[in-house]
Design a protein around this nucleic acid. Sequence first.
DNA 1: AATTGACTTGACACTGTGTCAATTGACACG
DNA 2: CGTGTCAATTGACACAGTGTCAAGTCAATT
Lengths: 167, 167
Amino acid sequence: MADIAKATGISRQAVYLHFTSRSELLIAATLYKGDLLDVDARLAPSRAATVGVERLDRYIEFWGDYIPEFYPVAKALMLAQDTDNAAAEAWRDRMRAMKEGCRAAIDALHADGTLSPDWSRPKATDALWAMLSVPAWEALTLDCGWSAKEYTRRMKSIARQSFTVGV
Amino acid sequence: MADIAKATGISRQAVYLHFTSRSELLIAATLYKGDLLDVDARLAPSRAATVGVERLDRYIEFWGDYIPEFYPVAKALMLAQDTDNAAAEAWRDRMRAMKEGCRAAIDALHADGTLSPDWSRPKATDALWAMLSVPAWEALTLDCGWSAKEYTRRMKSIARQSFTVGV
DNA sequence: AATTGACTTGACACTGTGTCAATTGACACG
DNA sequence: CGTGTCAATTGACACAGTGTCAAGTCAATT
């Protein structure tokens, strides 16, 4: 909080006039950044896709584009999760929203008959969601040095191979 | 530290007689638990496998068995990572060791000629490692409610489909 | 009987979050 | 012109958690 006050040029106490707690500030920052990034517009290509596999591909492309921009603020919220209930709830909420996108993509495969018989819709949703999780993205890009492009390309490939049949 | 002292029935200060800092205690606990679990013996089936795909399967089975036992202590170290350099280094070290196992499995596929042409050995190692990461395991088992058995079965399936060819 | 080692109590420094009271300066309204 | 309001200020404080220090206890060793 002191650092933020310093960076914005106001006193530490003044920060508390705007946000009642550290976690509230973090949550507000996350929501604000989410708005700035205009998720709905970015999701349009995936939502417009008529074929299941295309919907899946477009969704992963969305995510691969979105996460590097969203990550810095998301990271702070993710860390706060462990010491703060409100932050944990806010994070879970974001992740739930992301999972809905996964579910929609998997449902589109199912509607097409291209969902692999190995997977029920809920299980495939779980697996896709875990694959695309922020920590997994961190591991591949930050730790392993994958570019955003490579991340997207390879995740699409894994997802196709795992969840689709006969494409 | 106060909680640990209480749980062990000694004074808080006495804990510092044994471990100079919180992170040192965490690291020692992690190493101790690792020893108790006898990683080498558990890895034997994977190391003994002669066929690449079998080595991969046995490695994922090892991991699926191992991680639920190791997780409680690993989690504490993982969290300490963000505030403590020594803990971060210790965690990275554990993860490096785990990645070596991934590398060995991928190398075994390559030696067999069953590594998918989509993947170079390093990239496949990265991807397998990220797939099997602790946060991904947390997401699937703790958040999604997958059983250990299901986790293992499905991760084997994903890994096979993603990384092997013509099995 | 003296020494050693593990442990104790109690106090303290430091960091970070969050709260409170009193004050200042700018601006708008009647 | 004075008044009230609002945002912000300074400075102090409570509280939790980590880590340190000094002095003392107590049992086993020698």
